[in-house]
Simulated assay, not measured.
Amino acid sequence: MWKYTVRVTGMMCGMCESHVNDAVRRAFPVKKVTSSRSKKETTVIAETELDEAALREAIRATGYDAGEIRKEPWGKKGLFGR
């Protein structure tokens, strides 16, 4: 699984966060997506690698600016931190 953290500017409220989340869900089969206007980022958890250009475009199509994307392997932490 992969975790993508996308720098997103222009989100001003909870509805903005929802618009970005919905756009990502429509564009990709993701496990989880959350956005934070205060952190200015969207976090996406996916089982497979995503096309970063398409991820940026999906967010930009909602009217927000998508910048830097950080990608890292992601594993759900168990009871003992494994």
Rank of each mutant, 00 (worst) to 15 (best):
S18M: 14
S18C: 07
H19K: 13
H19R: 14
V20E: 12
V20H: 05
V20Q: 09
V20R: 02
N21K: 10
N21E: 15
N21A: 15
N21D: 14
D22Q: 13
A23F: 02
A23E: 03
V24R: 09
V24S: 03
R25P: 12
R25N: 11
R25G: 10
R25I: 10
R25H: 06
R26G: 05
R26Q: 09
A27R: 15
A27C: 03
A27L: 02
F28M: 06
F28R: 06
F28C: 11
V30M: 08
V30N: 08
V30R: 09
K31I: 01
K31Q: 14
K31S: 11
K31M: 10
K32M: 12
K32D: 13
K32E: 13
S35K: 12
S36A: 11
S36V: 14
R37Y: 15
R37N: 13
S38E: 14
K39W: 09
K39D: 11
K40F: 09
K40S: 15
K40I: 12
E41K: 13
E41C: 11
E41V: 15
T42W: 06
T43R: 15
T43Y: 07
T43H: 08
V44T: 12
V44P: 10
I45Y: 15
I45E: 13
I45N: 05
I45M: 10
A46Y: 11
E47A: 12
E47P: 13
E47S: 13
T48E: 11
T48L: 04
T48A: 14
E49S: 15
E49K: 15
L50D: 07
L50K: 07
L50Q: 09
D51L: 04
D51Y: 04
D51C: 13
E52N: 07
A53R: 03
A53P: 11
A53Y: 04
A53D: 15
A54P: 08
A54V: 06
L55E: 07
R56I: 00
R56G: 02
R56P: 06
E57K: 01
E57L: 00
A58G: 10
A58E: 00
I59R: 01
I59A: 01
I59W: 00
R60P: 04
A61N: 11
A61D: 12
A61K: 02
T62C: 03
T62G: 01
G63M: 02
G63P: 04
G63I: 05
Y64P: 08
D65H: 03
A66R: 00
G67N: 02
G67M: 02
G67R: 04
E68G: 05
E68R: 14
R70K: 15
R70W: 05
R70T: 14
R70C: 05
K71Y: 01
E72P: 10
E72D: 12
E72V: 12
E72T: 12
E72C: 06
P73E: 02
P73T: 08
W74R: 05
G75I: 02
G75E: 05
K76M: 09
K76R: 05
G78P: 08
G78Q: 03
G78Y: 04
G78V: 01
L79I: 06
F80C: 10
F80P: 09
G81L: 04
G81N: 15
G81R: 11
G81P: 12
